[in-house]
């Protein structure tokens, strides 16, 4: 059975806020459904942009098979840091899952998909809103 360490947030991410016990339940449930061994979750520091806990989990991955995120929008905000992290996961032949998005990262192609979704999510606040269409 593959061992997975959970990863949760204590701060907002992309305008969302989810209580930690709910994040924990969702991660645990994902592990159960996919037959992964759940190794409790580590909580990221609440300072904005902090990925210190994530890096620590990554350094422990020799004893783990993967990292279980509540959402893919909890990945590092900075594009370069995010890409570097995802690439490291793939290169080390580990995996990461994102429970809310029901998505498992295991190859370079998956990184591309994650990046595209991130970029669209970031641009959406700048797109027209429903009310704007009425003024066209």
């Amino acid at each position: 059975m593959k061992k997975v360490r959970g990863y949760m947030f204590s701060r907002n991410f992309m305008g969302e806020r989810v209580p930690q016990h709910i994040q924990n339940q969702v991660i645990r449930n994902f592990c159960f459904q996919n037959n992964f061994q759940y190794m409790l979750s580590a909580v990221e520091y609440s300072m904005s942009n902090s990925s210190l806990i994530l890096n620590q989990i990554f350094n422990e991955t020799k004893n783990l098979d993967g990292i279980g995120f509540y959402s893919l929008f909890q990945l590092p905000k900075k594009e370069e840091a995010r890409y570097k992290f995802l690439k490291k996961i793939v290169n080390k032949k580990k995996f990461a899952f994102f429970a809310v998005e029901d998505f498992i990262l295991s190859s370079s192609k998956d990184i591309e998909k994650i990046e595209t979704i991130w970029l669209i999510k970031k641009i959406l606040p700048k797109c027209l809103e429903a009310k704007d269409f009425k003024n066209v």
Binding site: V100, K121, E129
Partner: peptide, 9 residues
Amino acid sequence: PYGDKKIGE
């Protein structure tokens, strides 16, 4: 615009 059903999830 997206409703409660978001991009990604």
